[in-house]
């Protein structure tokens, strides 16, 4: 059953929650209908402030998001949340429990929360999440928060989506230091230390400070380091202010243009790259050629570069549908 996307789009633009939810499902399955709908919605996007919240498992992201929703709602701003959890690489299934923390807002119609499994599908996390964010934006949400587990690809993906990235850490999680070393520091616009009432919060502060000063470019935005206790709401006010400050900085310094362009560039890149790959893997004819070339590369009848060039040329020359 192909749903009438024009109809869905009309309802989404009016803020209809049911239509938005259904369209999100379609985009998650990367269907052509969904992409047609996004094309129609796109002119209406670009108004929301998109905030990425990322950090290791157990750092209290959902609790933090819950408290942020509370704050934004008290300022009468409407909120959209996309909570991404990893899918099982073996079965493709997922247990999505982030909502537990935020479900007190389930009956507030100005809050829309959507859980997503990372699925590890061919589109990657970024593609589907991007479309869900577009839908929330087109629905008229003022604030959109994207919550991802910072492990591997996800936190880099989030830069493609979010204007402001909050990198969350907690004292005592050893792997944090690893992530700092791995260079993901660069993606954070704001650093928050959650559970700051625990031992080790000060140490974490100093660690972050020195890691940041290493990568500091000197001018422009200086990422603040904030201490919060998400469970009690301590420090949330400051965090909201820091997020607001970052937004203002972007606008005033006209960094916002660069920020937007960077994100659009990344989104476009994702779509092009993934469309190619998907076409190769999902279309039966292309797949046959692909598999044949894989075998030839393996047998040394050809090399990977030549094979790739042949595939690209083939795709460009034979447009389908």
């Amino acid at each position: 059953m192909a749903p009438d996307t024009t109809e869905l789009v009309k309802h989404v633009l009016k803020g209809n929650r049911r239509a938005a939810a259904r369209l999100m499902t379609l985009t998650e399955s990367l269907s052509p209908e969904a992409h047609a709908a996004i094309k129609q919605l796109y002119p209406y996007t670009g108004k929301a402030h998109i905030i990425g919240i990322t950090g290791p498992p157990g750092s209290g992201k959902s609790t933090l998001v819950d408290k942020l929703i509370e704050k934004y709602r008290s300022h009468n701003l409407s909120v959209g949340v996309v909570a991404v959890d990893p899918s099982s690489p073996f079965t493709g299934g997922a247990l999505l429990g982030d909502r537990i923390r935020m479900n007190r807002f389930a009956s507030d119609h100005d809050v829309f929360i959507r859980s997503m499994g990372s699925r590890g599908h061919l589109g990657g996390l970024a593609w589907a999440t991007m479309d869900v964010v577009h839908i929330l934006d087109a629905m008229g949400k003022d604030i959109i928060m994207v919550e991802t587990v910072g492990a591997g690809q996800a936190e880099v993906d989030i830069v493609q989506l979010a204007e402001t990235v909050v990198l969350l850490s907690v004292p005592g999680l050893g792997d944090d230091i690893q992530t700092i070393k791995a260079g993901i520091m660069e993606i954070g616009n704001i650093f928050a230390i959650n559970k700051a009432d625990l031992d080790g919060a000060d140490r974490r502060f100093v660690e972050l400070q020195s890691a940041l000063s290493l990568g500091q470019e000197g001018d422009g935005w200086e990422p603040p380091i904030l201490k919060v206790v998400a469970t009690t709401g301590e420090g949330i006010e400051d965090l909201v202010k820091a997020i607001q400050d970052h937004h203002e900085y972007l606008v005033e310094s006209e960094e916002i243009v660069k920020n937007r362009e960077r994100r659009c560039y990344a989104q476009l890149e994702t779509i092009i790259e993934r469309s190619f790959i998907r076409k190769l893997l999902m279309d039966p004819d292309e797949r046959t050629l692909f598999d044949k070339l894989v075998a030839e590369v393996d047998q040394r009848k050809t090399d990977p570069y030549t094979a790739a060039e042949r595939l690209i040329l083939h795709l460009i020359k034979t447009p389908k549908k």
Partner: peptide, 10 residues
């Protein structure tokens, strides 16, 4: 005192 929030465990 507030209310308790449980860690999410399956």
């Amino acid at each position: 005192y507030g209310e308790y929030q449980e860690p999410i465990i399956f």
